[in-house]
Amino acid sequence: MTSKPAPAGHAVQPLTADEESLVRSLPLLIYALPRAIDAAMAQEQHMSATEYLALMHLSEAPGRRLRMGDLSSACEMSLSGTSRVVHRLEKEGYIQRVRCDQDGRSYYAALTESGFARLEQAWPSNLAAVRRHFLDHLTEINLKTLAASLRKVAT
């Protein structure tokens, strides 16, 4: 799987059975894992995985706040999707929108103390779901190598 065709006269090597199995399992993982974690979070915390991620990214940001566009990028969501999540979390008192001092048009999403407390409350459920649905299945794999390989593929 490359971005350019094989040079003329060079045959593309067919996938081995293991390669084929890996390539076919990726879409299943990409589809199933977020949904499984989201279902666990909804059942145990009455919070979506996306809401949890927004709170998590804000908790890790300087001053516990991010521009909406930066939060959108961190959560890998559209700006409109991020706005909907922030609006829901704002209604719960977990996030506050703050106008940006520099340009006056942009807004920050700022994590409130209540939002940080909610994140701490939800963290064990998220961790358990990540372990149960993903990490516990990777016992025979070098995770450091796997993480580096996945980052390399992504970039």
Rank of each mutant, 00 (worst) to 15 (best):
S3C: 10
S3W: 12
S3A: 14
K4H: 13
K4S: 13
P7C: 11
P7A: 09
G9L: 08
H10D: 13
A11I: 08
T16L: 11
A17P: 08
A17D: 15
E20Q: 15
S21G: 11
S21R: 15
S21V: 09
L22H: 15
L22N: 14
V23G: 06
V23D: 11
S25M: 09
P27Q: 10
I30S: 11
I30F: 14
Y31V: 01
Y31D: 10
A32K: 09
L33H: 05
P34Y: 01
A36F: 13
A36W: 12
I37L: 04
I37M: 03
I37A: 01
A40L: 03
A42H: 15
Q43K: 13
H46P: 02
H46N: 15
H46S: 15
S48Q: 08
S48F: 12
A49Y: 02
T50C: 04
A54Y: 08
M56S: 06
S59I: 04
S59N: 13
E60H: 10
E60R: 12
A61I: 03
P62Y: 03
P62D: 03
P62R: 05
R64F: 02
R65Y: 03
R65D: 00
L66S: 06
M68R: 06
M68H: 03
M68W: 01
L71M: 03
S73P: 00
A74N: 01
C75M: 11
C75W: 00
M77K: 14
S78M: 02
L79G: 13
L79P: 06
S80Y: 05
G81W: 06
V85K: 04
V86K: 05
H87R: 12
L89V: 04
E90D: 14
K91S: 12
K91V: 07
E92C: 10
G93T: 13
Y94K: 04
Y94C: 11
Y94F: 15
Y94V: 06
I95L: 12
R97S: 08
R97T: 07
D103R: 05
S106I: 02
Y108I: 04
A109D: 03
A110L: 07
A110I: 02
A110T: 11
L111Q: 10
T112G: 09
F116P: 00
F116R: 12
R118E: 15
R118Y: 13
L119K: 02
Q121H: 11
Q121K: 09
A122F: 05
A122K: 02
W123Y: 08
W123I: 00
P124L: 04
N126G: 08
L127D: 04
A128S: 00
A128I: 02
R132G: 01
R132N: 03
R132C: 00
H133A: 02
F134S: 05
D136Q: 06
D136G: 03
E140N: 07
E140A: 09
N142T: 05
A147W: 00
R151D: 07
K152H: 10
V153G: 06
V153R: 09
A154I: 02
T155A: 12
